[in-house]
């Protein structure tokens, strides 16, 4: 069973190969991390998967359908979800309205169902008290959690998280991990996590894909990747050092 299957994805910007022939599979309910130094092509890869950037070559299959040319909103409606590296909320909507925008992906929900569902989601993430606040008045960590709630309200089968822990303090990172774990215990949710925080990656990921200069240099379980000499020399030592401070 494969939920997401990307084959030989390449992305060229002029003479620069941002991604070259990357193969990637995610099974339903699986937790995969994508790591690599800055500029390795991780965000570009997510952009290709979500349809924000068309690939130069390669195919993306999601849930058995070829979505390589599908517009973003179709992929989202098919069960893909994503958060952004720096967090992107609808600035002039309230916290609740932001989440309701996600929940409205199902057109058969009534307004009160949207509201109840979104409040429930906020409650689970510990944000129900902020429901009616303007998103501009939230802390950075809270904003990122609201974005996560909004993505979850779309009911994704696969959630792509682009550095969700960046800019969070230690306590918030712990909270984020606990909530992701709890969520995955309740429902079948596959996650692709891009993260520089190696502690988080090693604790959560079942499998890790390592990118460097747009190429796949390793893939395997956390233990395998940690001991892979190519990874160690190319990246992990340096990355681990960065994550410690």
């Amino acid at each position: 069973m494969t939920l997401l299957h990307a084959t030989a994805i390449s992305k060229r910007y002029g003479g620069l190969m941002a991604l070259s022939e990357v193969d990637f599979r995610v099974a339903p309910g699986e937790f995969v991390a994508v790591i690599g130094p800055n500029g390795a092509g991780k965000s570009t890869f997510l952009n290709v998967l979500t349809g924000l950037t068309p690939p130069s070559a390669g195919r993306v299959l999601f849930d058995g359908r070829d979505v390589t040319r599908a517009p973003t909103h179709r992929r989202i409606r098919a069960g893909l979800g994503r958060t952004f590296q720096h967090g992107r909320l609808f600035a002039r909507l309230s916290v609740l309205e932001n989440v309701m925008t996600g929940a409205a992906i199902r057109t058969d929900r009534t307004e009160s169902q949207l509201r109840a569902l979104s409040l429930g989601m906020l409650d689970r993430m510990g944000l129900v008290g902020e429901a009616h606040r303007a998103v501009g008045s939230l802390s950075y960590g809270q904003r990122r959690m609201v974005e996560l709630c909004r993505a979850l309200a779309c009911g994704p089968k696969l959630l792509l998280l682009d550095e969700p822990a960046a800019g969070l303090n230690l306590g918030e990172v712990e909270q984020l991990m606990a909530r992701l774990t709890a969520l995955r215990a309740e429902q079948e949710l596959a996650v692709v996590l891009i993260e520089h925080n190696m502690g988080m990656v090693m604790r959560l990921a079942q499998r890790i894909l390592v990118l460097n200069f747009g190429c796949r240099i390793a893939e395997g379980s956390p233990a395998e990747v940690q001991s892979d000499p190519a990874v160690l020399s190319a990246y992990l030592g340096e990355g681990y050092g960065n994550a410690q401070h």
């Binding site: 979500t50 349809g51 924000l52 517009p71 973003t72 909103h73 989202i76 409606r77 979800g81 994503r82 952004f84 992107r88 909320l89 609808f90 600035a91 002039r92 909507l93 309205e97 309701m100 925008t101 996600g102 409205a104 992906i105 307004e111 949207l114 909004r150 993505a151 779309c154």
Partner: peptide, 20 residues
């Protein structure tokens, strides 16, 4: 939902796409 969708597009088109 229609009004919110419009405001979402106004505030951030990419994020709006990302909510379907």
């Amino acid at each position: 939902r229609y009004g919110r969708a419009m405001m979402a597009v106004r505030d951030d088109e990419t994020a709006a796409r990302m909510t379907g």
